[in-house]
Simulated assay, not measured.
Amino acid sequence: MPRMYRAGVCRQIVSRLPWGEVVAAIAAETGIAQATLFRWKRQALIDAGVIQGIPSVEADELGTAHERIAALEAELTLTRDACELFNERAVVPPRRRRAIVED
């Protein structure tokens, strides 16, 4: 699982990148992987409108939507499983015999 960093740490480091600091030097100083720093830098450029891509705000909304969809799909699966279980174990009442009444 990827390591999560506080938003403040990300903002501080990203603010240093446009000023010409070398990513390798920042990675060595902070212990954060170079790939992570390059990803943060690219996202900062997208957010600034320098390059094309999905801005952070839209990506966050999209991520939330994906989580909600996954939760709804899981709920639907549980409901279907419960319905199938009910159908398999459904008790059918026996046929009632009509009482023959003789007068």
Rank of each mutant, 00 (worst) to 15 (best):
Met1Tyr: 10
Pro2Lys: 11
Met4Asn: 12
Tyr5Leu: 07
Ala7Asp: 15
Gly8Ser: 13
Val9Leu: 15
Cys10Ala: 14
Cys10Gln: 15
Arg11Tyr: 08
Gln12Phe: 08
Gln12Gly: 03
Ile13Arg: 00
Ser15Gln: 14
Leu17Trp: 03
Leu17Arg: 01
Pro18Arg: 00
Pro18Tyr: 04
Trp19Glu: 12
Trp19Pro: 00
Trp19Cys: 04
Gly20Arg: 00
Gly20Cys: 06
Glu21Lys: 08
Glu21His: 09
Glu21Pro: 00
Val22Met: 05
Val22Gln: 06
Val23Ala: 06
Ala25Tyr: 01
Ile26His: 00
Ile26Leu: 09
Ile26Val: 15
Ile26Cys: 01
Ala28Asp: 09
Ala28Gly: 06
Ala28Met: 05
Ala28Ile: 00
Glu29Arg: 05
Thr30Asp: 04
Thr30Gln: 01
Gly31Asp: 01
Gly31His: 03
Gly31Leu: 01
Ile32Leu: 03
Ile32Tyr: 07
Ala33Pro: 01
Ala33Val: 02
Ala35Ile: 01
Thr36Gln: 11
Leu37Phe: 02
Leu37Arg: 00
Phe38Thr: 10
Phe38Met: 07
Arg39Trp: 02
Arg39His: 09
Lys41His: 12
Arg42Pro: 02
Arg42Asn: 08
Arg42Tyr: 01
Gln43Pro: 03
Ala44Thr: 05
Leu45Ser: 09
Ile46Glu: 06
Ile46His: 06
Asp47Asn: 15
Ala48Cys: 04
Gly49Gln: 03
Gly49Arg: 11
Gly49Asn: 06
Gly49Ser: 07
Val50Ser: 06
Ile51Gly: 01
Ile51Asp: 06
Ile51Met: 03
Ile51Ser: 04
Ile51Tyr: 05
Ile51Cys: 10
Gln52Glu: 12
Gln52Arg: 14
Gln52Met: 06
Gly53Val: 07
Gly53Met: 02
Ile54Glu: 14
Ile54Gln: 14
Pro55Val: 06
Pro55Ser: 08
Pro55Gly: 05
Ser56Val: 08
Val57Tyr: 07
Val57Ala: 13
Glu58Leu: 13
Glu58Trp: 05
Glu58Asp: 14
Ala59Ile: 03
Asp60Val: 15
Asp60Asn: 09
Glu61Val: 05
Glu61Tyr: 12
Glu61Asn: 13
Leu62Arg: 12
Leu62Phe: 11
Gly63Phe: 08
Gly63Met: 12
Thr64Cys: 04
His66Cys: 09
Glu67Asp: 13
Glu67Gln: 12
Arg68Glu: 12
Arg68Asn: 05
Ile69Phe: 11
Ala70Cys: 10
Ala71Thr: 09
Ala71Arg: 15
Ala71His: 07
Glu73Tyr: 01
Leu76His: 04
Leu76Tyr: 04
Leu76Asn: 08
Thr77Asn: 10
Leu78Gly: 15
Leu78Arg: 14
Thr79Tyr: 14
Arg80Thr: 12
Asp81Gln: 14
Ala82Thr: 09
Cys83Glu: 10
Glu84Val: 05
Leu85Gln: 04
Phe86Tyr: 13
Phe86Arg: 14
Phe86Gly: 03
Asn87Ser: 05
Asn87Pro: 00
Asn87Ile: 03
Asn87Tyr: 11
Glu88Tyr: 06
Arg89Asn: 15
Ala90Trp: 13
Val91Tyr: 10
Val92Asn: 03
Val92Trp: 10
Pro93Arg: 11
Pro93Val: 11
Pro93Phe: 07
Pro93Gln: 04
Pro94Trp: 00
Arg95Gln: 10
Arg96Ala: 04
Arg96Gly: 08
Arg97Asp: 08
Arg98Trp: 07
Ala99Lys: 14
Ile100Leu: 09
Val101Thr: 07
Val101Gly: 03
Glu102Arg: 08
